[in-house]
Computed example of a mutant assay.
Amino acid sequence: MTETLYLDLFFLVNLAADCYLLFLTGLVLREPVRKRKGRLLLGAVVGAAAGCALVFFPNLPVSVWILLELVLPAVLMTRAAFGRGGLLELLRRTTVLWMAAALTGGSFSLLESAGGGRELPVSGNAPQAFVGTVTAVWEQTPWTFRKFGLALSVAGGALWAGTVFLRQGMAFHNSLYEATLYYQGKQKTVRALRDTGNQLYEPYHHQPVHILERSAGLEFGEAAAQVIYVPFCSVGKEHGILAAVRMDRMEIRQRGRLVRVLENPWVAFCETPLSARHRYEMLLHGELTL
């Protein structure tokens, strides 16, 4: 059975889809998409042209097909649409584009399977475009504008929510450190979070104070002779006092790399857990440069 592929229509369909995907990618990456309409269109043209070119090579090996269908067009599209960037920036843009394509394709497939599809009749004397011995099927899904808009909304919303979730998780992960405290010949390593909301200072010389859970500092014992009391206020508690000790030294590491050494830092002890899920036991001062 010979089936017909209209290459001009195939190009226009891919052009529209690539424009949408690049626009959605730009929104997720917070690119100035409204000022780059011409570049977005250029990137979509590159992607549509690559898709049409691959029609002429239907029997490619899987590895070559992955390179020419998934990797190379995505790289060229993002480069044309968003300009040059480093390797990490290119990888980030390409990954978001793949995510947008996967989510959009999944939403469309779901609605297509729910609504069914029908093949357009092909006239016997209609112009035909054959590609060797392999041709493609052109199908039209009986969608309404409402279903089409729903598919785009679902895909865009899911991608946006996933990106925000990953961005928040990465921001939290990048704010976690390992803090090793030294005091009177003893040492203790705890997980610490750099908290911009921690603006606690000791009252005498206005030096920053870090906060440690009492249960995480039991190794240091009691040091009443060297304790000062630091007043504080927080949400749900207008006034309070924390006992603070001046440690001998504190080393701060992230992923095993030493990023900061503090001599004689002030550390206050908190009776309540700082993290409900025990993901950290210490709050570093918000103005600490790391």
Rank of each mutant, 00 (worst) to 15 (best):
P265C: 12
H206R: 13
R194T: 00
G85C: 05
A223S: 10
L60H: 01
L27P: 01
G106L: 13
L40I: 15
M247Y: 11
V134H: 13
E263W: 02
I241N: 00
T141H: 09
C270Q: 11
M170K: 14
E119S: 13
A44W: 01
T141I: 15
L68K: 05
W160T: 12
F57S: 03
A136I: 05
L288V: 05
N14D: 15
T272A: 09
A276F: 02
A192K: 11
S123I: 01
V28Y: 08
F145Y: 07
L21Y: 03
A102N: 05
G26I: 10
T104K: 06
G157Q: 13
A53G: 08
A161Q: 01
I241C: 00
T4G: 05
E89T: 13
T196L: 06
T104F: 13
G286M: 09
A101Q: 15
S113P: 01
Y229T: 11
E213Y: 07
T2A: 03
A48G: 04
A129M: 14
L12Y: 14
L5D: 06
L5W: 04
G217I: 00
G38F: 02
L193D: 05
H206F: 08
L76E: 07
H239D: 12
P265I: 10
E222F: 06
L21D: 04
L193W: 06
P61Y: 10
E238M: 02
Y280M: 07
G217K: 02
L72N: 08
A179T: 14
L97A: 13
C233M: 10
V259K: 14
F10L: 09
P61T: 09
W98C: 12
V13S: 04
